[in-house]
Amino acid sequence: MATSPITQGAPKTTEGAERRFHLYLAIAMSATIVAGFSVHLAMGRSTFAVPPIFHVHALVFFGWVALYLAQTALIAGNNARLHRTLGLIAFAWIPLMVVVGIALSLTVSQRTGGPFFFDKNQFLFSNTAHLLAFAGLAFASLKVRRHGGWHRRLMLVAFAILTGPGLGRLFPLPLLIPHAWHFMLGVVLVWPAIGMIRDRMVMGRIHPAWLWGIGAVLAAQLVADLIAYSHWGLALTEQYTAGTPGGERPMEAFIPPGFAL
């Protein structure tokens, strides 16, 4: 998450205000992730008694949350040198997140078939698509790190993708079957939408990075849906989960017998 070289001294008022805005939004996004998982843990819907990949996933992904928060705080405080140095971690951390994230999705698909309020095939392919979208946007952000406006906006959209699991635990998604996944996608995109509104209010225009970022997320979902609901996608999902607990649940989202919110 390295960024552009910063001129000596305090940043311009508008630049400083923008950096603080991204810091506040980073804090809000991180808080929703923590809140979502904490609420489920407190309600007994989550447990630490899970296979090791779950713990590795938590360590890696919450590590990114900490890194993103640190980076936004550093640049908001005009500490560009440490920001650039710490940002080098991202080049190795992003691929690690993709590998661990896909490994967890595959494990969950066989273990439970995914959350019951998502179609089994949709969960399998959409998770992978969004992980790749995250990685693509994050690396694109790093590539244009000398252009602060693009860098911070693309990175924010990438981070917004990761808020989905936390946010999903704060909404009654079983009541939104069969549209739970796409509903959550809309909620995730509220974060960049807030940035777009601020751009319009402060600059009088919307920075194109938002449109590219949101477009990438929507494109990833479109591709995921086309694959997931194709004959090939349905067959692959059935084949991959066959003979496992995940293969015993319906392909479509469903309400388990006796379930209550």
Score class of each variant (00 low, 15 high):
M1I: 02
T3Y: 09
S4W: 03
Q8W: 04
K12E: 15
T13Y: 07
T14F: 04
T14W: 05
E15A: 15
G16L: 13
G16Q: 12
H22G: 01
I27C: 08
I27P: 00
T32Q: 09
A42H: 08
A42W: 14
G44F: 03
S46K: 08
S46C: 00
T47K: 03
A49Q: 13
F54I: 11
H55W: 12
A58R: 10
A58D: 09
A58W: 10
L59K: 05
L59R: 02
V60D: 10
F61W: 14
G63N: 06
G63I: 08
G63R: 07
V65C: 10
V65K: 01
T72A: 14
A73K: 12
A73W: 14
G77S: 14
N79D: 15
T85I: 15
G87S: 03
L88H: 08
L88N: 13
A92R: 02
V99T: 10
G101C: 09
I102T: 08
V108N: 06
Q110F: 00
R111P: 00
G114T: 07
D119N: 15
N121M: 12
N121A: 15
L124P: 02
F125D: 01
H130N: 07
F134N: 01
F134L: 03
A135Y: 02
A138T: 00
S141G: 15
L142M: 13
K143L: 13
K143R: 12
V144Y: 09
R145T: 01
R146S: 11
W150N: 01
H151D: 03
A158F: 01
L162T: 02
L162H: 01
T163L: 03
T163E: 00
P174F: 06
P174Y: 05
L176G: 05
L176P: 11
P178Y: 02
H179Q: 11
A180V: 08
A180F: 03
A180W: 01
F183E: 02
F183H: 01
M184N: 09
L189E: 11
W191Y: 12
P192M: 08
P192Q: 11
A193T: 14
A193I: 03
M201L: 15
M203E: 13
M203S: 15
I206D: 05
H207K: 08
H207T: 04
P208H: 11
W210N: 09
G213N: 07
A216T: 15
A216F: 02
V217I: 13
A219Q: 01
L222D: 04
D225R: 10
L226R: 15
W232S: 12
T241Q: 11
A242L: 15
G243K: 13
P245M: 13
G246M: 12
G247N: 12
E248W: 00
E252C: 00
A253E: 09
A253H: 06
A260V: 13
A260F: 07
A260R: 14
